[in-house]
């Protein structure tokens, strides 16, 4: 049962109007939920995590552990002057940050977060996620090209090359999951993983796809890091090479949007991994939504950990890894999974 249906049933009246109100309310709840996470991650968690890796104290003045920094930081970012570069391609330049944020946010619509927090559960859930998430590439190109800045242009080009190279392996690995579950529907994927794989005395190991096929899990992790553009694959931004890549010319609210978009993307990557590899909201004792949150934050932590210790690869090496290694391995994984699933079915 999805969230809009729950709300609709709780409403005193029925009909199309109630359906619309319920959908809107549910979308607001989930959007706010995701945004809250990113707001916490961007100005606060990222600082604290980086500080932990580098033996620093970092923000500690407002609220417990300095978490109150979120508010002044938001005020600071939003109140800055919006500088529009000369010769910017206006509609595209303005739209790019929105495309970036909403492409990631929309994809959350089909992610089951546990405890009924699930906006929609279409039969093509997984395809929807990948399709919507890859719209972000469009936003990157728009931002890079419309900024009328050579660094932004280079960054935009890099972003496209990278997303092309890593989206295909990503989807191929996703297909291997579909072979296993036999369904594209997200709720179905989660349900399949709930089945017990083996029982070790009192402990029962669930059939999470990460446990069933760790090879695919590792491949997906790598491809996902590239997809969200974090070390070692952060070449589209690469501040020490091309200043800030496609986001060089963005300031104020637009910058906030792009920044948010990046974090929503990291969380989306975490959500996809949690859903198709780590059993979604499944977990003992705690409610599902908490487990789901823990899983996506763990993925966020992982990207930050990579940032602290892993060098950025060069653009040609990045493309090479994508096309020559990851794609091949993704196909190997696909065929292997298909064979195993076929044999088991027969």
């Amino acid at each position: 049962m999805t969230l809009p249906t729950t709300i609709e049933e709780a409403l005193p009246v029925g009909g199309v109007a109630a359906e619309a109100v319920a959908a809107l309310a549910a979308a607001t709840v989930i959007g706010t939920f995701v945004m809250l996470n990113t707001a916490l991650a961007g100005p606060w968690a990222k600082r604290k995590i980086t500080a932990a890796f580098t033996d620093r104290i970092s923000v500690n003045q407002f609220g417990p552990l300095g978490v109150g920094i979120v508010v002044p930081d938001a005020v600071r970012l939003v109140s800055k002057e919006l500088i529009v570069p000369e010769g910017a391609d206006r509609p595209a330049w303005d739209l790019a940050p929105l495309v970036l944020v909403f492409s990631a946010l929309f994809a959350f619509a089909v992610i089951p977060m546990g405890n009924g927090v699930h906006l929609a559960d279409p039969a093509v859930g997984l395809v929807f996620v990948f399709a919507i998430a890859s719209v972000a590439s469009l936003g990157l190109v728009m931002a890079g090209y419309a900024s009328n800045n050579k660094y932004a242009f280079l960054g935009g080009l890099r972003a496209v090359a990278q997303n092309l190279a890593y989206e295909i392996p990503l989807i191929l690995i996703g297909i291997s999951v579909v072979l296993y579950t036999g369904s594209l529907q997200m709720s179905e994927i989660v349900a399949t993983q709930r089945e017990t794989l083996v029982s070790l005395g009192p402990l029962s190991v669930p059939g999470w796809f990460a446990i069933v096929n760790p090879f695919a899990f590792v491949l997906f992790l790598v491809a996902n890091v590239a997809e969200v553009g974090r070390n070692p694959f952060d070449v589209p931004e690469a501040p020490t090479e091309i200043v800030a890549g496609y986001q060089t010319e963005y300031s104020s609210v637009y910058f906030v949007l792009i920044y948010l978009g990046e974090f929503v993307h990291i969380f989306l990557g975490g959500a996809i991994i949690a859903t198709i590899f780590l059993g979604g909201p499944a977990g003992p004792v705690l409610p599902g939504i908490v487990w789901f949150l823990l899983k996506i934050w763990a993925m966020f932590l992982f990207t930050q950990w990579l940032r602290s210790a892993v060098p950025r690869v060069r653009i040609d090496q990045l493309i090479e890894i994508g096309w020559k290694r990851l794609l091949v391995l993704a196909f190997v994984n696909l065929f292997a999974t298909a064979t195993v699933v076929g044999v088991l079915a027969a």
Binding site: F53, R56, N231, D234, Q304, R307, S308, P311, R312
Partner: peptide, 13 residues
């Protein structure tokens, strides 16, 4: 910093 990116721990160490 040039190779790892600006969040590397090595610079801080």
């Amino acid at each position: 910093l040039d190779i790892y990116g600006e969040f590397t721990a090595i610079f801080m160490y």
